[in-house]
């Protein structure tokens, strides 16, 4: 007799009692995988006073929610969160566990995976099932795509960034079972979160921006980077960065666009001083118009955009900003 596969899990994440979009996106995708696997979708939600929010998880496609509700769980606490999830996974034997590539997810996922002795794929840009119903995690590398599988160990675990999967259609009529989780009392508590500070992000947020300007190593230095930032400001665009630009210290890690950073879906994308590395380009999903400015005519970025300008971005961008301003002023006066 064929063994009934375990369910597809999503470790949902909440910040100040608000469920993150990525968790809902993952539940909707888990639904698709679960249909193919003929199994159910289950979400794990840890927080405090979260009963009401479980409805969203059901609306997005969960059949069952494991809910840990306790003051101790209000914020991410690595030891307690890991312990609860590991214990539950050992009991329930899920087939697949998906976690958002957030700062919590990126720490919690490997803690859980190592404890369960299983594999974990990072920052996937797609998740599909192969002919043997094994989860294939798609990851960009070396100018191509790698499929990574975890053939033997279970659960199969993966982290996925917000925006990789679309916003789910919420079915407010869906309901499901809630199973309450106990908070174990034998936690070592060698890590204590004393304070969580979240500042309001500066600039235009990626989620809502119709235009994304992204800059790369071609900026040359901080001064060059500021010119790209000026371009973004002129266009009222969100400003993203490639990994090299983050590594240079010009841009914050949180503004990194790409596989291990943000996934964005703007109408217009302008890549400045970047070479079109796949790890960055997979971060731009479904842009209608793409533009690149790069001084190297042979740069692969020019194979991935609609319009290209071959020029030193440090020289070109200020000229472009002036022209845009002229155009914008003309619009106002008309």
């Amino acid at each position: 007799m064929k063994k009934q596969p375990g369910s597809v899990w999503v470790i949902a994440e909440q910040i100040d009692c608000r469920i993150l979009d990525v968790s809902l996106q993952l539940i909707a995708h888990a639904r698709k995988l679960a249909i193919e696997l003929e199994t159910s979708v289950e979400a794990v939600l840890l927080g405090d006073k979260m009963n009401e929010q479980t409805r969203q998880l059901f609306a997005a496609g969960a059949d069952r929610v494991y809910l840990g509700n306790a003051p101790d769980l209000a914020h991410y606490q690595p030891e307690i969160y890991t312990e609860i999830i590991v214990k539950l996974a050992k009991e329930r034997q899920p087939e697949i566990v998906l976690i958002g590539s957030t700062s919590m997810g990126r720490e919690l996922a490997p803690l859980v995976a190592a404890r369960l002795g299983t594999g974990l794929t990072a920052h996937c840009i797609d998740l599909v099932l192969d002919e043997n119903k094994i989860l294939e995690s798609i990851i960009p590398a070396y100018g191509g795509l790698l499929s990574i599988i975890c053939p033997e160990k279970r659960p199969q675990m993966a982290t996925i960034a917000a925006g990789v999967f679309p916003k789910p259609e919420m079915d407010e009529n869906r309901t499901g079972e809630i199973i309450a989780l106990e908070v174990p009392d034998d936690i070592p508590r060698r890590i204590q979160t004393l304070e969580i500070i979240r500042e309001k992000p500066q600039g235009v947020s990626f989620e809502s921006a119709p235009i994304v300007v992204a800059g790369g190593a071609g900026a040359g230095d901080l001064e060059g980077w500021r010119k790209i930032a000026d371009l973004a400001e002129t266009l009222n665009a969100a400003l993203g960065a490639t990994r090299p630009a983050v590594d240079e210290g010009w841009a914050e890690l949180e503004t990194m666009v790409g596989q291990s950073g943000k996934i964005v879906s703007p109408e217009l994308y302008i890549g400045v001083g970047l070479s079109g590395e796949l790890q960055h380009m997979v971060g731009i999903v479904g842009a209608k118009v793409m533009v690149a400015i790069n001084n190297d005519a042979k740069s692969p970025v020019f194979e991935q955009v609609d319009y290209g300008v071959v020029d030193d971005c440090r020289e070109f961008v200020p000229v472009l900003i002036n022209k845009i301003k002229e155009y914008q002023e003309k619009l106002v006066t008309c």
């Binding site: 299983t118 594999g119 795509l145 790698l146 990574i148 796949l278 005519a297 020019f302």
Partner: peptide, 19 residues
């Protein structure tokens, strides 16, 4: 636990107009 099961090339090509 994980292995690479496939390497694929991707075609993200657009026809560029160089200005």
């Amino acid at each position: 636990p994980t292995i690479i099961s496939n390497l694929a090339t991707i075609d993200s090509k657009r026809t560029v107009e160089i200005i």
